[in-house]
Design a protein around this nucleic acid. Structure first.
Lengths: 196, 196
DNA sequence: TATAAAAACTAATAAACGTTAGTTTTGCAG
DNA sequence: CTGCAAAACTAACGTTTATTAGTTTTTATA
């Protein structure tokens, strides 16, 4: 019978992982079955195990791919010159673009991480907590230099991260707003507020 | 054997629903089993069915209780005098307090609604979409009166709703920040921005 | 074209699931 | 104390699940 399409650059494992992200997003990790995933890939369920180790392994791959992308960008940003305002703006815009360009995987990392098994669950949470702490430090430095208003830096980080995460509700309105308008409006709202 | 504690004002069905909200939040609707719920209630699984109709029915009760609370508050706000700014602030603060005071149920309504069965799923989405539209109308009226900056009103609503939703990440930091500080800081950030 | 590895297939297993049936126990009204 | 309804129990059902075993087909190499 026909094999899974080898693709140009993507291995069969990559194809499966990508289809898994779409399926986990649509139905949730627990509700998504390997039989459904196999159907999406165009194969019988047991054939998947020629390429992957387990269902959990797929979730791990998705979650850490996303987490690592954010961590690497933050490290890069920290190592480049610039004031806190521009760094924060860059990070906000990166979050927005990640959300728009890697929607399935980011959604799954945001919503289904709790189904990770140990020790991956703990590792994921540690990495996430570290990311938050570095963002909080950035907020604090901006407050110290007088760029940002005083206030609890944790609340500010929470507000920004959560607002960007909410872009997942936006996909059904894609036709009405361009990505650029969305990115600009949301960044502006978070940095400068809505009231004149 | 001992019956479920009748409670003062809560029926046994209410007790089960409340425990279900906590369990669905912790493990997700699909991963949570009726046997686990029964254990949390202090009973064997089949005994639950003397009080409830099905697992799905529990999710329906939780989701629509939350949706109705938000809808009713919005209607009340719309029917009271006030400019768009104060109305928006009231709504933001109500969202924040709902998140803090009814965390389990709000979390479940936000995360597990996709496991509702028809026709409840469609009804829930229609109600949610209607709520969004009324908030967008409020934003537009504020832009018209010059209270709010120009910009896409949908993006503004999205930003605000999502930021407030993110309070679910806050519970692990409860000790460090008071509810009032959190509510004030977040409301202020969303209305006036973070940059001086 | 022959051969070996890769990857598909069918069949099956053990576990967990929501739920039903049937029975026993509990708690209250008379 | 008796009797009845409410609510607990045990046992079991039919499904669905992820995964393994064993076999056949496909693909690539030589």
């Amino acid at each position: 019978m026909a094999k899974i399409k080898p693709g140009k650059n993507a291995s069969k494992k990559d194809v499966i992982t990508q289809k898994a992200a779409a399926l986990f997003k649509a139905k949730g990790f627990s509700s998504a079955s390997m039989r459904e995933l196999a159907e999406a890939v165009g194969v019988e369920a047991p054939s998947l195990y020629n390429h992957i180790g387990s269902k959990s392994e797929l979730l791990q791959a998705i979650c850490f791919k996303v987490a690592n992308a954010f961590t690497i960008y933050l490290e890069t940003t920290e190592n480049t010159a610039g004031n806190a305002s521009s760094m924060l703006e860059n990070i906000i815009r990166f979050h927005i673009r990640m959300m728009l360009n890697n929607f399935d995987e980011v959604y799954v990392a945001n919503h289904e991480w709790k189904h990770l098994k140990e020790p991956y669950l703990s590792n994921f949470l540690v990495q996430r907590r570290g990311y938050e702490k570095r963002l909080i430090a950035l907020m604090e430095s901006g407050i110290d230099t007088g760029e940002f208003k005083t206030g609890n830096p944790f609340v500010a980080v929470l507000t920004i991260l959560s607002a960007v995460r909410g872009l997942e509700f936006w996909q059904q309105h894609k036709k009405n707003i361009s990505s650029q308008v969305l990115e600009d409006d949301m960044t502006n709202h978070l940095l400068h507020g809505i009231i004149k």
